[in-house]
Computed example of a mutant assay.
Amino acid sequence: MSTDKICSENAPKPVGLYPHARRVGNLLFLSGVGPRIAGSNANDSGIPGLVLDHNGNFKEFDFEAQVHSVFQNVRSILEASGSRWENLIDVTVFLVNMKRDFHTFNRIYAEYFKENQPCRTTVEVNALPTPIAIELKCIATI
């Protein structure tokens, strides 16, 4: 069975040596997707709603902006792969602060998934590779 590697110009570059997604048969597996803006890299913030001081401490933080951005990045990767938002079948959510962010995420998630309701798992993690508060791991059909 052949697998196709997919990279999207409309999503931020991965922070390691991996593609945005891989197609296997009619399934699409997305690598972890964060909220960074396309064209930014791991060394600059490029994170919506986040302003850091010269020591890397948060000066401004807007979790809602990160959620909307991560959904846009997932959508961009899906479309570059020949899939679409409605084809998502499984979403794993990684939150850095479950207590602070879960209810906000759940509210915004419900806006994006009124019709299509993929399976979902939400877990809290200690940290992510860049100063982001959320990352998604998704599976879709093509």
Rank of each mutant, 00 (worst) to 15 (best):
M1E: 06
K5V: 11
K5E: 09
I6K: 04
E9Q: 14
E9C: 05
P12T: 06
P14C: 15
P14N: 13
G16F: 15
Y18K: 15
P19K: 04
A21W: 01
R22M: 12
F29W: 14
V33F: 00
G34M: 00
G34Y: 00
P35N: 12
S40K: 01
A42Q: 13
D44I: 13
P48E: 03
L50Q: 07
N55K: 15
G56A: 09
N57Q: 15
E64L: 07
E64V: 01
A65H: 05
S69Q: 05
S69W: 00
V74Q: 02
S76F: 01
I77M: 04
L78W: 00
L78A: 00
L78G: 02
L78D: 01
E79A: 02
E79V: 13
G82T: 03
W85L: 06
E86M: 06
T92I: 04
T92V: 07
F94I: 01
L95V: 06
L95F: 07
N97H: 12
M98P: 01
D101K: 05
N106L: 11
E111F: 04
Y112I: 00
E115M: 09
N116C: 09
Q117T: 14
Q117G: 07
C119E: 12
T122E: 03
V123Q: 13
L128S: 05
P129F: 10
P129L: 08
I139A: 02
T141M: 07
I142Y: 14
